[in-house]
Design a protein around this nucleic acid. Structure first.
Lengths: 235, 235
DNA sequence: ATAATACATCAAAAAAATATCAAAATTATT
DNA sequence: AATAATTTTGATATTTTTTTGATGTATTAT
C-alpha cells in the first residue's frame, strides 16, 4: 500500500529540499516544494496538500507567522524541521499550532515515522456506510432509516429486518433464511414473527400497504425487496 | 484557565515520576502514577485519563506492547518518554501508535508544549468554543451551559455528558460509545449510570421531561441529541 | 367453485428495556 | 472533622418491543 498523499515542503535549502523530495517519493508520497512564505501560501491554497513540512528560517519571513496564518483556517498537520535546536523556538512553534518539531540534522526514517504518526491521527475519517433504494436510505453507522428524507421510527427488529432485506435487494429470500439471520438459529420456523414484522415494515415504508412496491411476497417461498437501481455509496 | 485534564504517568523511576508530577501539577494538570504495565492498564481503564506519558523500560515488560494493547480500543494520545535515543526504538514506538517520542534527558517546558500540542489536536472535535442548539448554549472554554440565557448548574458528569451529546448532535450515540467516552473504558456496561444521568439532564434542560425535545431515546441502541438548526459537518 | 394452504392484520399478553426516585457511598469543600 | 456535593447503587414504575393468538383475506390445487 502506497500512501500517495501530497506533502508540501517549505524549505529554502536546495540540498535538503532535494533529499526530502527523494526520500518522500521513495516512500510513495507526492511532494511540492516552496522556497519562501509567499509561494508556500500559494501552493497551500491551490494544491490542497495533506501535510506541511516547514523550515523556520525562510528568506521572506519567519515560519511561525506562516503557521499562525494557516491555523486561522486549517487544521492541516504541520511538522517543523529546523536547525534551531532551541527550547524557546520549539515551544513557540508548537504553541503556534505546529504538530511536531524535528531538529536538523535529522534521521530521514524518523521523520517518515513522525509523518506517518501525524497523518494517522488526522486522517481518522468517518466511514459513511449507506444504502439507498428509491426513496429509502439506510445508514448502517447511525442505524437510521430515512424515507423521503424523513427519519423513520423503527424498532430494533424492524431495523434489522429492513437492513437484511435491503442488503439483499432484488433477491428472493426464503422465510427460513430471513428468520435465521434476523432472529437467530432457533427461530427458523417462527413464520408468524416474520409475517408480523413484514406487516409492520410495510405499514411504515409502503405508500399503499395493500399494493407493496418495496417488499413483495413470493408465495410459499419468501419475500423480496425490490429496487431497480440501488447504488452503494461509501466515502 | 487551568487545563485540569488527567494525565497518566507510566514511569518506574521515582525521581522522574516525582519531577513530572510536580511540573504537571504546577501547570494545572491532574496526574496519576503507575509503575508497571499491570497497574497502568488498571489505571487506564478506571481513571479515564486524557493523555498517557509512557516510559518504555518497565519492570514487567516493554512499553510498546502496552501501546499496542491500548490502541486496540482507544485513540488516547500517548507520548513516549524514553532514555533509549535509538532511531529504531523511536520509529517502532511511533508506528505502534505513539503520538510523540521525547528522549531523556528532556526539557520539562518542551514536554509541556508537546503535551499541549497533542491535546490540542485530539480535543479539536469542536472547531468553535461554543455551540448553540435552540435555547441551549454550551461554552467549552468556561465549561458553562446556558438555558434561555440562564446559567445551568450541572455536575461534572452531567456537563461531560451534555458536551459529548451536543458535539455529536443529531447522531444516534450507542450506549456503550457514550459510556466509553464520558466515563471511561471500564464503564461500557454501566447502563444504569447512563440512565440516571440522562434523567438528571432531562430534568434540567427539557421543558417537558416526559416528552423530551432535546435528548431522545433510541431504544436498544442509545440516545440522540436532536438539534434541527445544527449544520452537519461530515463529508 | 371449493377446500386447503399460505398470508395479512390486529390486538392482547409477556418480556425487555428504559425512566424515575431515593438512599447509600464516595469524594470534594469548608 | 464536619458539611456539602456528587456519584453509585438498588428498588420500583413506566414505556417500548416482542411474542402469541385469533380472525380475516388471498392464493393455489383439485
Amino acid at each position: 500500500m502506497k500512501p500517495n498523499e501530497l506533502i508540501l515542503l517549505i524549505e529554502d535549502d536546495d540540498a535538503i529540499g532535494k533529499l526530502l523530495s527523494i526520500s518522500l517519493h521513495e516512500y510513495g508520497y507526492k511532494t511540492r516544494l516552496a522556497k519562501d512564505i509567499t509561494s508556500a501560501k500559494r501552493e497551500f491554497i491551490t494544491q490542497n496538500p495533506a501535510l506541511l513540512i516547514l523550515d523556520l528560517g525562510l528568506p521572506d519571513g519567519d515560519g511561525k507567522t506562516l503557521i499562525q496564518t494557516i491555523r486561522k483556517e486549517s487544521k492541516i498537520p504541520i511538522i517543523v524541521l529546523s536547525a534551531r535546536n532551541d527550547e524557546k523556538e520549539i515551544i513557540a512553534s508548537l504553541d503556534c499550532g505546529a504538530d511536531d518539531y524535528v531538529t536538523k540534522p535529522f534521521s530521514t526514517k524518523e521523520l517518515l515515522a513522525r509523518i506517518r504518526s501525524t497523518l494517522r491521527r488526522t486522517q481518522q475519517k468517518t466511514v459513511h456506510d449507506t444504502l439507498t433504494c428509491k426513496d429509502i436510505t439506510i445508514d448502517f453507522i447511525k442505524k437510521e432509516v430515512l424515507l423521503d428524507n424523513v427519519l423513520l421510527r423503527l424498532t430494533p427488529t424492524e431495523y434489522n429486518l429492513l437492513a437484511f432485506l435491503m442488503q439483499n435487494a432484488n433477491k428472493v429470500l426464503p422465510h427460513q433464511h430471513i428468520l435465521k439471520t434476523v432472529w437467530g438459529l432457533g427461530y427458523q420456523h417462527q413464520m408468524q414473527y416474520l409475517r408480523t414484522y413484514i406487516n409492520a415494515l410495510r405499514k411504515k415504508i409502503e405508500k399503499n400497504s395493500t399494493r407493496p412496491e418495496y417488499i413483495t411476497t413470493e408465495s410459499s417461498i419468501g419475500y423480496r425487496f425490490s429496487c431497480l437501481s440501488h447504488k452503494e455509496e461509501e466515502q
